[in-house]
Write a protein that binds this DNA or RNA. Structure first.
Lengths: 221, 221
DNA sequence: CAGCGTACACAACGGTTGTTATGTACGCTG
DNA sequence: CAGCGTACATAACAACCGTTGTGTACGCTG
């Protein structure tokens, strides 16, 4: 069987074109011709690799989730609160790529909310995320870095807060720079810290330059 | 110019039908015929009251967030943290109506994210919400109920956390009952409280009269 | 009662949608 | 080199979209 092109690689190209269309027009503007145009091809190409639009979108979103997990990927340096903070920070839309991923994923909620199957899938993603965060929270509590409250409630709160920040940052990127997002996360974690630890533990993540306060606000309307 | 029917009331009926369609099928399934069917009428009725679909949706969403403001409406009993907690709780999708309102509003992000005008509108809604929350936060800080950190950061955090909870609750209603949502809000507010005041809203005495804000974000001055 | 404007239903319009059928250039195999 | 299957382009398809025009029942005004 002669394969002039790599079938799976081509499917990935098409999926990438779907992402680009979604990022610029949302699900409302997603159509086969738009994807084809973005790809510099025609709908014939798309239908050659995908039997239906539903399958197209499904594959594109699967790829997107995979890509997201990979972008949020590896275990962070540090343990306990430091690791938790690092993990939460990677979710924030602080790079152009993560802006695109988050944008698509937020827009996807319009579909997920009215489709039980998609809702369940999204709920499972939340569960997986919390499962990954949990050991760091438990470690932090054991080390006295975090107040010893219900771990599940902590996970509910930190994931909710982080995603809430994502939404606000996407809706108003100009007024929600990285520093402001980080400040909110830091305040959240500081609040969860044990009463005895007044001085926040040093974040050993050498990569992230800490600029906690001053770049946050500009106000001259 | 005899008015057999109340023109404005009829427009409200149509808007209500739009909400019902949006709640059950999302923006992806919103069409004039679907709205007309929901209304038990034809597209002729709709076009008689609205010049275009865009105007229809605009009016329906205007009505919707007017209705939301009213549902989230009056000043809560209490002041300071108690008022803040009450305000945040009213946003959570704890009633059938608020589930519908939140669902539409979350689905709307798919459109807002790719339309600068709509994004600005949503950003303004966030600003108004924070403006309403702000006095309670300031009062709570003045009363020593809340740690004296940057009020803007506090507002960013509490709104983000609350909306994050809304999303999770909508995506997995069965596993996210009211109590679990309240627990997360309570944990958030407890964390923002002064270190020595967990349950009793007592003033923190003269311990940190010098610089309480520095205890949170800054570890090295 | 005549006449007119309102409040719709109904049907048709051009455009766009996802899907499908047909055509064709081309590298591989025999 | 003949032949065949792959990788598309092209175009047609019915279904649907928002919009518009026309038809009509009916209450109000004169």
């Amino acid at each position: 069987m002669p394969a002039k092109v790599d079938h799976e690689a081509r499917r990935r190209d098409v999926a990438a074109a779907v992402w680009r269309v979604l990022a610029s027009t949302g699900f409302a503007g997603l159509g086969l011709r738009a994807v084809a145009a973005e790809l510099g091809a025609t709908t014939g190409l798309i239908t050659h690799y995908f039997p239906s639009k539903r399958e197209l979108v499904r594959h594109a979103l699967d790829q997107l989730h995979e890509r997201s997990d990979q972008a949020l990927g590896g275990e962070p340096d540090g343990t306990g609160v430091a690791a938790l903070r690092a993990q939460l920070r990677t979710v924030l839309p602080t790079t152009e790529e993560k802006v695109v991923l988050s944008r698509i994923w937020v827009g996807f909620w319009d579909l997920a909310l009215v489709d039980p199957e998609l809702s369940a899938h999204e709920a499972e993603r939340y569960a997986r995320w919390k499962r990954r965060l949990r050991p760091h929270v438990e470690h932090a509590i054991a080390a006295g870095e975090l107040r010893a409250v219900d771990v599940d409630v902590v996970l509910d709160l930190v994931t909710a807060a982080t995603h809430g920040l994502v939404v606000q940052a996407l809706l108003d990127p100009g007024r929600f720079p990285v520093g402001r997002q980080h400040a909110a996360v830091d305040l959240l974690l500081a609040g969860l810290a044990g009463p005895e630890t007044r001085s926040t533990p040093r974040a050993p993540g050498g990569r992230v330059g800490d600029d906690p306060a001053r770049t946050i606000l500009e106000e001259t309307p």
